[in-house]
Design a binder for these strands. Structure first.
Ligand SMILES: NC(=O)c1ccc[n+]([C@@H]2O[C@H](COP(=O)([O-])OP(=O)(O)OC[C@H]3O[C@@H](n4cnc5c(N)ncnc54)[C@H](O)[C@@H]3O)[C@@H](O)[C@H]2O)c1
Ligand SMILES: NC(=O)c1ccc[n+]([C@@H]2O[C@H](COP(=O)([O-])OP(=O)(O)OC[C@H]3O[C@@H](n4cnc5c(N)ncnc54)[C@H](O)[C@@H]3O)[C@@H](O)[C@H]2O)c1
Lengths: 250, 250
DNA sequence: CCCACTTTGTGCGTACTTTCACAAGGGCGT
DNA sequence: ACGCCCTTGTGAAAGTACGCACAAAGTGGG
């Protein structure tokens, strides 16, 4: 079989002594998915603070910027270890390093995008990609009239070279931006080639074996969720209040 | 104030709703967010079944297609009411109607996209948009060299006409595809103009007042989450198992 | 009309999240 | 050195979400 399951319990356990300088904290293995999904948000907020020259920040302030409850933020960070100083807060630069390390951003990840249509091109041209450890290693498409085109400085390759590219470029994350009908096939090839992380933009549920992570970005679903709440608001209710940013989780 | 919050605490909660004086069975007001987020997935699966001529489907089969546990699916559907027939399953067409109605897709929603750059164009050209009750009412940008261009059959308008457009076209959902630096400003204008649902593609946390829904789509965060798990996999662990599709929730 | 069989709807225990509230830790002024 | 004040880290409570297991409900055959 393959399919199903939402979040996984995350294991925990072993872990030698980290590299951390002095006050290193034992950090337990097993960070909650909900926390993992928020770490990138904290990281972005911290980088903004760092760029503006702020040396330290309290959980209260950082939480405000990140749009979360401060207790939640502290608990999230506590999963990484005790990197704060009571009475003071967290050292911005140090925390950036810790979160980056935890997320695996201290190493580079090669990404291959398949389906260089409207969306694929936008993704390829998206600068924010490389800013954080992600490198677009290849752009692939099945349409021979597109193959060879230069997009964002990269020549589009033919889908048939997927396996070669994955191996040569050591691709670890596959992005699928093809029509839904081709998504499963592309996904299977990625997996067969050894890729175990997939980001899917096609509006369909991919079937994958255990051990493979798939995250989906589905515009249509987002709109439908918004429509649901919008309808509620005008449904006569005075009530409804949804609040701040809701994105993905697990 | 305004700011904060990530996922909303789910309104549901209180909302006794003494409303329905009738029989007890009917759907209580207050569908769990997690359920709302899955309804669109079920809907899509059902439509595929409908197109292939399938008249009824069991929770087991539908769950398989949607990639979820069948008990979860049944519980989700039970929030809408009892639309299944024991021993048979659910009537595809009827269920499509019920879910559509619940999601508010039986009415049309006008959408305005701001920021017609790489991503904005891809969104505008995205056909799947209109397929389900969503109509792109306007495309706006601040760059005068873009204003006037025809994208997906629509002329790009100037951002200064936002308020007029929202009123004239009765826009209820605003899509932000501008650089992060302009996102909050655009968001504020949308809200000021009366829009209470926003879909944000800019990598930043928007500050909004209560009553306004914001959903974000953040490519960078998705990649970072994948990187986290990818790192775990190679961290020596044999273990890690994340599985099937993970998308947004709440 | 009754029985065997299928599938729904849901009670219940478990697990995960969020939030509150506060004791303990640490810096700083005196 | 001492004590005050600020902020962290976290136990515990409350709220949600999941998925199992099964009684109830409906179908079709005999
Ligand atoms: N454009 C958007 O804003 C948007 C939004 C949400 C979802 N999506 C989804 O993203 C996907 C891509 O959207 P798009 O607008 O870029 O579509 P598109 O038609 O512009 O591009 C699809 C590309 O995939 C290529 N392709 C088709 N089959 C392939 C295969 N087997 N192997 C490799 N490449 C193949 C095509 O040649 C084409 O270049 C679709 O599934 C769409 O539903 C798009
Ligand atoms: N392209 C992607 O794949 C991608 C992926 C993830 C996130 N994003 C985010 O989406 C946003 C748009 O990305 P893009 O690649 O399309 O960028 P882009 O630079 O191509 O387009 C941005 C557009 O917004 C317009 N704009 C700027 N300020 C504006 C304002 N105040 N009002 C109205 N319009 C304004 C610009 O004129 C431009 O046309 C960015 O925030 C980016 O980080 C993009």
């Amino acid at each position: 079989m393959s399919a199903q399951l939402q979040n996984a319990p995350t294991i925990a356990a072993q872990e030698h002594t980290p590299v951390t300088p002095r006050t290193s904290q034992p950090r337990e293995r097993g960070i909650p998915e909900a926390t993992v999904a928020r770490l990138p948000v904290y990281l972005r907020a911290l980088q903004a603070l760092h760029e503006s020259g702020t040396p330290t920040v309290s959980s209260e302030d950082l939480a405000e910027i990140a749009g979360v409850n401060s207790a939640k933020l502290r608990k999230d960070l506590s999963h990484l270890g005790s990197y704060g100083t009571r009475g003071v807060g967290y050292e911005v630069e140090y925390l950036i390093y810790q979160i980056s390390r935890e997320l695996g951003l201290t190493q580079d990840w090669s990404v291959a995008i398949v389906g260089i249509g409207n969306l694929g091109r936008a993704l390829a041209n998206y600068g924010g990609f490389g800013t954080r450890g992600f490198r677009i290693a290849a752009l692939l498409d099945a349409d021979v009239s597109i193959v060879g085109d230069k997009v964002a400085g990269l020549a589009v390759g033919h889908i048939d070279t997927l396996e070669d590219v994955v191996e040569k470029e050591n691709v670890s994350i596959g992005v699928i931006a093809t029509p839904a009908s081709a998504a499963q096939g592309v996904c299977d090839r990625f997996i067969e080639a050894g890729v175990t992380s997939v980001l899917n933009f096609a509006p369909m549920v991919l079937n994958v074996p255990p051990g493979v992570d798939v995250r989906k970005v589905d515009l249509s679903i987002e709109l439908q969720i918004l429509a649901f709440h919008e309808q509620r608001k005008s449904d006569g209710h005075v009530e409804s209040g949804r609040i701040g940013q809701t994105g993905n989780a697990r």
